[in-house]
Simulated assay, not measured.
Amino acid sequence: MSRTARPYWIVLATFAVAALWLLWAGRVPICTCGYIKLWHGQTMSSENSQHLSDWYTPSHILHGILFYAALWPFARRIGFGWRLAIATAVEAAWEMIENSAWIIERYRAVTISLDYYGDSVVNSLADILAMVAGFYLARALPVWASILVIVGFEALTMWIIRDGLALNILMLIYPLDAIRDWQAGL
Rank of each mutant, 00 (worst) to 15 (best):
E98W: 05
A75G: 12
I103S: 05
H51G: 02
F67N: 06
R108T: 00
A89M: 12
L66D: 05
G81Y: 01
V132E: 10
G81W: 09
L66R: 08
L114W: 15
I128G: 02
A133Q: 12
S113R: 14
W82V: 05
I86R: 01
R76W: 03
L62V: 14
A101L: 14
P73D: 07
A85S: 14
R76L: 07
R76S: 12
Y136N: 12
L66E: 05
S124Y: 07
A92I: 09
W55Y: 11
D119R: 00
H60L: 08
G64I: 02
A138M: 10
A126L: 03
Y56S: 15
D127F: 04
Y117W: 03
R108N: 08
V122F: 05
W94M: 04
L141S: 09
A69C: 13
A85M: 07
P58E: 00
A69E: 12
T111R: 01
I61E: 01
A133W: 09
W94R: 09
Y107T: 00
L137A: 14
F67A: 15
T88W: 06
D115Q: 13
F80S: 14
I112P: 00
Y136T: 10
S53V: 11
F80Y: 15
L125A: 04
E91D: 09
I103H: 09
L141R: 06
I112Y: 08
Y68Q: 11
L66G: 07
A93N: 00
P73K: 09
R139L: 11
F135A: 08
H51I: 02
G118Q: 00
R76A: 14
R108A: 03
D119K: 01
I97H: 09
S53Q: 12
W72S: 14
R83K: 13
S124G: 07
S113V: 01
A140T: 10
L141Y: 08
D127S: 14
L71I: 03
E91I: 07
D119F: 00
E98I: 08
M96L: 13
A101Y: 15
A126K: 07
M131K: 08
G134E: 00
Y116D: 05
M131E: 06
A138I: 01
D127V: 01
L84W: 08
S124L: 04
S120L: 01
T88N: 13
S59M: 12
L84F: 02
A87V: 01
F67R: 06
L141M: 12
E91G: 11
Y116A: 11
G64N: 11
G64Y: 07
N99I: 03
D54M: 07
E98L: 06
